[in-house]
Design a protein around this nucleic acid. Structure first.
Lengths: 240, 240
DNA sequence: CACACAATTATTGTATACGATTTCTGCATG
DNA sequence: CATGCAGAAATCGTATACAATAATTGTGTG
């Protein structure tokens, strides 16, 4: 991960910067608009964004460092694919570090920070009722990311922030939207943190992640290989 | 057909690949032959290795992803510098994940793997007696890296492997060689792991890392800013 | 002498050109 | 009809050229 993905309102027709393109692809993969094994052709992207292949190449290399794309020599860049086992390993690592973060944050969090997270949860519920699942996905991960950012150890929070996007690469996860909606697990976790009950918060977080992971194998191996980058690009949140 | 690059004195030499240059710089930084804030000029490196700036740029971008070099826009690449606080945070994260790895490995390790690690420890002691400190540094980190590789969760081991090189960026660490030599802490940790006493091994590992970290502030802020890339390159383990 | 500022130099950022490798296509052949 | 093998087309890898930006030097003025 290089830096926080944040979609900026694009209006300027000036030449897009490498960072912009990186962020755009990053978000597209996280939101599953670009599915695993999708080929990311350099000329295609270069022409789409109106820049040279050099820029595209840089963005793809950064994404490769994030393990979101796989660079095959002399063959090109593809959206990375995760096995079910790898997905489980990610959740295991996530649980471990998340627990440590929660323990620390429980002792340092301020009312303002709690309020900020509550606002995020409120937005989640709203997105859920509106059935805006891409937004919900984004906000759900955002909760964990913002929580991690409250940790005083940036190396731990960075680890989380590198791990979370990769979970989007596991080819499933639609399943988990409903539970999130009804149960408001993020709210429970935050409640415990807010009152300083670290271990209860940790337990709630572990149960939360367990639940997400348990939903994984349900409809694994779903989804076909790929769709053409062109078709997706017409839907991409970019210019033109 | 011998694809062995013949090392005759002539100038016919296979062009170094990007990966080679990356590895070379990576090791040079880890072994502290390239110190923090050293500027890594593109043309200088390109001419030295006999490749174009394109290749150098790729290597530098990868190193930037590893947080070993800092890329300043329009100014160039510099060996990254760590504050004392950041170094402590790295060790904190390291302790956390190392403990988890040890817990798992203690239940899965095989006699062959134990033997392999013991051989490494023997080499460490040998390097210590020979006072070959660069080699000792390399072997010491290698112990932790090989241990991490025994973990079934590659995401955890990768985290460790990304963390360790960064500790080289903290401007100190000569201090810790003596303790390592006399006390053989790696050996102790391995002994506990070999007999399956996970918690004792974890405790030993934590004490080990605590010791290293404690030695940090001793002579912090030592070492001046930089030395010229040229001067270092004459010492670099590469082609002349 | 110190300081500010313009011109020069050096270095990075981007685009383009060319070579190498892979993939696709079509035709011949069993 | 399937298969195998050219040859063509597309795509990636690297080098080079040029533009943009920062660093440096030199010069004039308070």
């Amino acid at each position: 991960m290089s830096d926080v993905p944040h979609r900026s309102g694009s209006k300027v027709r000036a030449k897009p910067t490498e960072d912009f393109i990186y962020t755009e692809l990053y978000n597209a993969i996280c939101e599953r608009q670009l599915l695993p094994d999708t080929k990311l052709g350099e000329v295609l992207l270069a022409e789409h964004y109106g820049v040279s292949r050099t820029i595209i190449r840089q963005a793809l290399m950064r994404l490769s460092g994030d393990r979101l794309v796989k660079l095959e020599p002399n063959r090109g860049a593809f959206v990375a694919r995760l096995t079910l086992e790898e997905a489980r390993q990610i959740y295991a690592a996530w649980r471990l570090v998340e627990a440590e973060i929660i323990r620390e944050v429980s002792t340092t969090i301020t009312p303002e920070q709690v309020a900020r997270l509550r606002a995020l949860i409120a937005a989640e519920r709203q997105a859920c009722e509106a059935e805006d699942y891409p937004l919900l996905t984004r906000l759900s991960t955002q909760f964990h990311i913002q929580l991690a950012d409250l940790c005083s150890n940036p190396f731990l929070s960075r680890f989380i922030k590198e791990l979370i996007p990769q979970t989007s690469l596991a080819y499933f996860y639609e399943v988990r939207k409903m539970p999130l909606c009804t149960k408001d697990e993020h709210g429970e976790i935050l409640d415990f943190i807010a009152v300083g009950d670290a271990e209860a918060a940790v337990a709630a977080a572990k149960a939360h992640l367990d639940g997400i992971e348990a939903a994984l194998d349900a409809r694994a191996a779903l989804e076909p290989k790929a769709s053409l980058a062109d078709k997706l690009k017409s839907r991409m949140p970019s210019m033109s």
